[in-house]
Write a protein that binds this DNA or RNA. Structure first.
Lengths: 112, 112
DNA sequence: TTCCGTTATGTCATAACAAACATAGCGAAA
DNA sequence: TTTCGCTATGTTTGTTATGACATAACGGAA
């Protein structure tokens, strides 16, 4: 029998969830592509959905996670703020540690 | 800023998720009440939903988590097998440890 | 001034999911 | 043999989440 314990983590601020795996993926894609629309395409989700996700984050956090510019060379773009990048870093770090921790704990269990 | 890291865990068997928080709650209620219908009522969900949840678990696990009897004194009932009880125990234990671990990890982070 | 790729939103159809309703069978006990 | 509370399902309805379209504005570059 191959049991496995899996987990999902998310970050809350004052009781309101605002960052989970999906949004982290999107933030990373923004960081890589330099624009929200390119990020959405790369993740195969609609621009509108991506925009809604980022909008929800920015409405909850005390500081914005992205800087958005409209028009101009290339039509504009979106990039992560230092705060946004640090959130991604913390999330990834915690996530990795959590998975690791659960794997180790599971091995200690003889029953099942 | 009061950031909090939250988590949900679940148990998979051969890649198929079969036990999460909701089902654990239901298994506990069955253990307390001795019947699926009473458990459903106590959790304020429909009997059908509860039945579907348990059915899904029993279809995935190698051994049944419940023993169901129809008719007779009291109309029948449902009780947990030893295997079912051990699953509940393992889940709760892992869950508590996971929450605790994340809390400790979060305190180590100075940024944010 | 025209064009292009963005950001920024609103609306509407649809699909996925959940809840409500309905019904049947079982077996002990009265 | 009737009643009762339970297990066991199917069907139908309603609600919510998702996706598809549609449109506007912006500003640099050609």
């Amino acid at each position: 029998m191959k049991y496995k314990i899996k987990s999902r983590i998310w970050i809350e601020l004052d009781g309101r969830e605002f960052l989970g795996e999906g949004k982290i993926r999107l933030l990373k894609a923004i960081d890589e592509t330099g624009s929200l629309s390119k990020a959405a395409r790369s993740l195969d989700i609609s621009y509108k959905k991506a925009w809604n996700l980022i909008d929800a984050v920015n409405k909850t956090t005390p500081k914005p996670v992205t800087i958005n510019s409209i028009g101009g060379k290339g039509g504009g773009g979106t990039e992560l703020t230092a705060y946004g990048k640090s959130l991604v870093g913390v999330f990834d770090d915690m996530n990795r540690k959590c998975w690791n921790f659960l794997d180790i704990q599971l091995e200690k269990i003889k029953s099942l």
